[in-house]
Design a protein around this nucleic acid. Structure first.
Lengths: 196, 196
DNA sequence: CAGCATTGATAACACCGTTGCGCTACACTG
DNA sequence: CAGTGTAGCGCAACGGTGTTATCAATGCTG
């Protein structure tokens, strides 16, 4: 049997890809190291060589989730109008969450019981809030928003979109509720609430 | 060994109490049937006689969580002013969540992987939104809030408080962030955003 | 008072994450 | 280019999980 180079990158990627698939297809409960290893035709020990533990593997998925998030946020076309940009960032947030719902659940809702992001990953997570904070700060400084600590406004906006998206992903919303229509209306109301 | 009456209610309560304690003390990961049964000095099979399965036991905790929620909401002193009442309901929401954070995580964030509330429990959960919907509807009808489907406003408000509370409970907020101060400010901004 | 249904204790099953052991194929040294 | 140290990882085991088949003991019902 041929031997890969030190720190087999191909196997690492295969494990990560398959882990993402298992997660998306069947949820966190179905993401088991044994099934994962079997699907990739390796042993569970390989996961420990490459990642360290199951939480460490999930950490890699967490990082991947935020990478995708960042890509989408960077692609958002902002206008310079704080209210409008808050709405656009909110729409991107939901789009990203719906694109990878199970990654979202790892990133924000502790879907895998034992997992906590390591320091580096947590910092990456926090960095994803930068565009939101920039927009809010600009809005406060230009006098569009009320003279409130921009951190408060930013966290409030984040909580708002996170809450609506979580309820939607968890199936907590009434079934007759059409989120797509209501979401933008709510985003606008939220942004307007911070007007001076 | 003496035998209890059919359908031992005392044992049921003891199991439920201890399950709540385990959950609060160590989180969902530490809530195992075997440990639970050992702590109450019975066997795991008793749980299956009394509840049916682990998810069914969690369902009982879910119901208990909503019962407490309802009690606190009922005790809220509403004023009749829609904006003020929205703020008060929001404050009660956070107080309730912080009082029983692990119950909250079961009720709203799928903290126990295999668990889904049964129909009856889900209906109880939905019923807890009634005061919010009443307040919103009154605000729309009296012309304080914009002429938007009250369902949209209510879900939006719910998402807002749920999001902020989830972020707080998950430790996602920046450590220097003082939630207590910011929360009411944000609630007021949110409510004002829906003004006509 | 006899028979029956139900409770729940014992022990097994299948699965999980994790780890000690040991082999083997590579990477480095001379 | 040969020899050797070591890193990757397969095997098998350990202790844990939820769940269930078996079955003795018990309270209720006829």
């Amino acid at each position: 049997m041929p031997r890969p180079k030190t720190h087999d990158e191909a196997l690492r990627v295969k494990l990560l890809d398959r882990a993402g698939e298992l997660l998306s297809a069947e949820g966190p409960k179905a993401l088991s190291l044994r099934k994962l290893a079997a699907d990739v035709e390796t042993s569970t020990t390989a996961v420990y060589s490459l990642f360290g533990s199951k939480p460490d593997l999930v950490n890699a998925l967490y990082v991947e989730g935020f990478r995708r998030f960042q890509t989408r946020t960077d692609a958002a076309r902002l206008t310079g109008d704080p209210v409008e940009d808050l709405v656009r960032l909110g729409l991107v947030y939901r789009t990203s969450a719906l694109a990878d719902p199970h990654l979202y659940s790892i990133m924000f809702t502790k879907a895998v019981p034992g997992f906590e992001p390591n320091d580096e990953a947590a910092a990456l997570g926090r960095a994803n809030l930068a565009p939101l904070e920039t927009t809010v700060r600009a809005g406060v400084e230009s006098g569009v928003f009320a003279d409130v600590d921009p951190g408060v406004i930013a966290v409030s906006c984040w909580g708002f979109v996170h809450g609506l998206v979580s309820l939607e992903l968890n199936g907590n919303l009434p079934s007759e509720f059409s989120v797509g229509d209501a979401y933008e209306t709510a985003l606008r109301a939220n942004a307007n609430g911070w007007r001076r």
